[in-house]
Amino acid sequence: MSTEIEPTSVPRIRTQFRLQWEEAQGCHVLLYPEGMVKLNGPAGEILKRCDGERSIDGIVADLETQFAEAPSLRDDVYTFLSTAHDNQWIQFDA
């Protein structure tokens, strides 16, 4: 459970979950057996990049390019990924 999150860790959405954009909700949602989590904008942008290929550093760099004006972006990513991991939405491959 208590995995250390390293900059080189590669997060991936666990197979039980499916991330998709829901037009009717106007947001990304995480779907799982008989359930759904509505994600806010930043959460959706981060999870979208948890593809099992990019490291956390890579995700942060990518977000910084796209959302240059966002303050404390790195901290936000770490905080959210830690929550996502506690909720078992993601796993770390490295």
């Binding site: 829901e22 009717a24 909700q25 949602v29 779907l31 008989e34 759904m36």
Partner: peptide
């Protein structure tokens, strides 16, 4: 079309 997303 009405927003249903979970189907049982």
């Amino acid at each position: 079309a009405m927003g249903a997303v979970q189907l049982g």
